[in-house]
Simulated scan of single mutants.
Amino acid sequence: MTAISLSTAQHVVVPASGPDGAAPLDVVTIARTASAALQPAPDGALPGPEELARSIGLLTEQIGLLLPIAQAAHRRNRPAGASGPGLVGHGLAYVRRRMTHTPPDPFVSPAEADTWARESARCVQQLLGLALDGHGPRHAAAAR
């Protein structure tokens, strides 16, 4: 597949389980959301609770969208005869387990919520990289 210029295309269609076997991903928006959550505040202060709640909500939705696509990519790309889940499989299992937990309330525990948001952003970046593997630009390029 040819590389996709993000200046002309914002969506990448990747294989996924669904009625038509594909899913369009808004790569630019997903990458920007993760990148924004990882940006340190200029003065070192935590983001406000409203901003943290919004960020956690968006990142949680993006993980929910990307996780099944990344799992399918992992299954497709796994070498024949490989034993065990491998490092990527363990990472995907971690994200699945993490999604069973309720995020900290940013109005009650802002520091914990900020940590949760940052870890969620790193998960989104990794899942996006797996989802795009061989289907378009990697997340680092998309964030530019």
Rank of each mutant, 00 (worst) to 15 (best):
residue 103 P to G: 06
residue 63 I to Y: 06
residue 28 V to G: 01
residue 40 P to F: 07
residue 72 A to P: 00
residue 25 L to C: 02
residue 38 L to V: 02
residue 102 T to Q: 14
residue 67 L to D: 01
residue 68 P to N: 05
residue 82 A to V: 05
residue 56 I to P: 00
residue 5 S to Q: 11
residue 86 G to P: 03
residue 14 V to F: 09
residue 58 L to Y: 07
residue 136 G to N: 07
residue 86 G to N: 06
residue 80 A to H: 11
residue 13 V to E: 11
residue 117 A to F: 09
residue 72 A to Y: 10
residue 68 P to Y: 09
residue 66 L to N: 04
residue 129 G to E: 02
residue 84 G to H: 09
residue 42 P to R: 14
residue 44 G to C: 05
residue 123 C to A: 14
residue 84 G to V: 07
residue 56 I to H: 02
residue 133 D to N: 13
residue 31 A to S: 10
residue 40 P to C: 03
residue 93 A to N: 03
residue 133 D to A: 11
residue 99 M to L: 11
residue 110 P to D: 06
residue 12 V to T: 11
residue 142 A to S: 11
residue 107 F to C: 01
residue 9 A to H: 15
residue 98 R to N: 02
residue 12 V to G: 00
residue 98 R to H: 06
residue 101 H to P: 00
residue 54 R to S: 09
residue 1 M to Q: 10
residue 46 L to W: 10
residue 94 Y to N: 04
residue 80 A to I: 12
residue 65 L to I: 04
residue 74 H to Y: 05
residue 79 P to W: 09
residue 81 G to W: 07
residue 79 P to H: 05
residue 14 V to N: 05
residue 17 S to N: 13
residue 84 G to K: 02
residue 38 L to F: 10
residue 67 L to Q: 06
residue 66 L to Q: 02
residue 125 Q to D: 14
residue 24 P to I: 06
residue 54 R to T: 14
residue 51 E to I: 13
residue 58 L to N: 03
residue 5 S to N: 10
residue 128 L to I: 01
residue 121 A to K: 08
residue 33 T to D: 14
residue 92 L to D: 01
residue 41 A to V: 02
residue 111 A to M: 09
residue 11 H to Y: 15
residue 13 V to H: 08
residue 48 G to Q: 14
residue 92 L to M: 04
residue 76 R to I: 07
residue 36 A to L: 11
residue 77 N to T: 11
residue 94 Y to G: 01
residue 74 H to I: 01
residue 65 L to P: 01
residue 50 E to A: 15
residue 21 G to F: 03
residue 103 P to A: 14
residue 26 D to W: 07
residue 115 T to P: 00
residue 23 A to Q: 13
residue 51 E to G: 12
residue 49 P to W: 12
residue 93 A to K: 10
residue 79 P to F: 08
residue 134 G to F: 03
residue 120 S to R: 08
residue 62 Q to R: 13
residue 57 G to R: 12
residue 24 P to N: 06
residue 130 L to E: 03
residue 53 A to M: 07
residue 47 P to L: 09
residue 72 A to M: 09
residue 1 M to S: 15
residue 18 G to T: 09
residue 91 G to F: 14
residue 37 A to M: 07
residue 119 E to P: 00
residue 111 A to W: 10
residue 23 A to Y: 05
residue 99 M to V: 00
residue 108 V to Q: 12
residue 141 A to W: 13
residue 82 A to K: 12
residue 44 G to P: 05
residue 5 S to P: 03
residue 87 L to P: 06
residue 117 A to K: 04
residue 8 T to R: 12
residue 91 G to N: 14
residue 41 A to Q: 11
residue 38 L to Q: 11
residue 60 T to I: 03
residue 102 T to L: 13
residue 106 P to H: 09
residue 64 G to V: 00
residue 54 R to H: 13
residue 134 G to K: 04
residue 134 G to Y: 03
residue 40 P to K: 13
residue 39 Q to G: 05
residue 74 H to V: 01
residue 115 T to I: 12
residue 20 D to E: 13
residue 116 W to M: 03
residue 97 R to N: 08
residue 59 L to Y: 03
residue 79 P to R: 12
residue 115 T to F: 15
residue 36 A to T: 10
residue 23 A to I: 07
residue 140 A to V: 12
residue 109 S to V: 04
residue 69 I to Q: 02
residue 116 W to Q: 04
residue 75 R to M: 07
residue 110 P to R: 10
residue 117 A to I: 01
residue 17 S to Y: 12
residue 48 G to A: 14
residue 68 P to C: 05
residue 52 L to G: 06
residue 113 A to L: 11
